[in-house]
């Protein structure tokens, strides 16, 4: 009798999907690159040859060399070290923004799809409205109108309390930059989840669960959502890459993470100004961003095939 309580065997659905995923060469390459990104993001400070902030004004804009593998930027900072630190930013952006956007999307989409009615109409109306506003515009407006007052307010708090936490620009980055990005990226997740929930809630096992007298909450959490998640996983893996590109675009426009925190986006932005003279300052971050984004898309495609075996020839 005790044996049945144990949960030692993985679901065959996931085991089969993993098997199919491993056979997909591009997906494995994508997974490999993402694994490297995660390791670099986690252990970057111990791996980078220089501090990402330390300037060496005697060695500005140096081309790649034995001392600086990827050269130095216009303040003499080591480009490789900044790329490695940028991986941490990129990873945090990708995960932070996607998790927040998916949470908003799943909660709104699932409740709208499952219960229908007025709430459903309101959510869909709100989703359409959000999607109809140009993404860049919305983020620029949020950041331009809020960043300055919040920074000033935090500086004032710092002067009052001398607590260094008020000078930590990471808070602004997380709340404001990531938050505003989440606010523009959730609608596709909400739509996807709603559509899935609509299709799953009509399946016979949901009716059977109702006939057993289970509550709506249990049916939604245990019967509907788990069976609606497949397409979301695919969307999330592609969304992680999109979020990194989006952050780069915002950094490029000056509304991304606050310098001097290195992000691939603001490195590209800096490099673009001088690329005719120092092409490596543009090439290095652009190449890394491109490779990682492509890796997420490879993984997303692979997951799509692995989780939908019927779609394969």
């Amino acid at each position: 009798m005790t044996a049945i309580a144990e949960d030692d065997r993985p679901s065959s659905l996931w085991r089969d999907a993993w098997k199919r995923l491993r056979r997909n060469r591009l997906a494995v390459i994508g997974l490999f690159i993402i694994a490297i990104l995660v390791i670099v993001a986690a252990f970057g400070p111990w791996m980078s040859p220089y501090d990402f902030l330390s300037q060496n004004l005697d060695a500005r804009n140096q081309p790649p060399s034995g001392l600086h593998w990827l050269g130095t930027d216009d303040l003499g900072r080591d480009v490789l070290s900044r790329l490695i630190y940028g991986a941490r930013t990129a990873f945090l952006v990708a995960v932070g923004v996607t998790v927040a956007a998916v949470l908003i999307g799943v909660v709104l989409g699932a409740i709208a799809g499952f219960y229908g009615g007025a709430f459903d109409r309101f959510v869909m109306w709100f989703t359409d409205m959000t999607m109809s506003v140009p993404q860049l515009l919305l983020v620029v407006v949020i950041n331009a109108s809020l960043k300055q007052p919040i920074s000033l307010w935090m500086e004032a708090r710092y002067m009052e309390t001398l607590n260094p936490i008020w000078r930590n620009s990471a808070i602004i980055d997380f709340v404001l930059v990531f938050g505003s990005m989440a606010l523009i990226t959730w609608p596709p997740y909400a739509r996807l989840v709603r559509a899935q929930v609509l299709s799953v809630r009509g399946r016979p096992y949901v009716t059977a669960a109702r006939a057993l007298g289970l509550t709506n909450r249990i049916i939604l959490m245990r019967y509907v959502l788990p069976n609606a998640m497949g397409p979301l996983i695919v969307a999330v893996s592609a969304g992680l890459g999109t979020a990194m590109v989006l952050e780069s675009a915002f950094s490029f426009l000056g509304v991304g993470v606050t310098p001097p925190t290195p992000s691939w986006g603001n490195m590209i932005s800096d490099g673009l100004r001088v690329w005719t003279n120092y092409p490596h300052l543009l090439l290095a971050p652009a190449a890394v961003l491109a490779v990682v984004t492509v890796a997420f898309n490879f993984l997303g495609d692979g997951l799509n095939d692995a989780l939908n075996p019927k779609g394969q020839k």
Binding site: S11, L13, P204, Y205, T207, A208, A209, R222, P226, N227
Partner: peptide, 16 residues
């Protein structure tokens, strides 16, 4: 009041 439904292939939740 208990129910048994028509299609046993689709009346069980595949993830439990």
């Amino acid at each position: 009041i208990g129910f048994i439904f028509q299609d046993p292939m689709t009346s069980l939740n595949p993830v439990i």
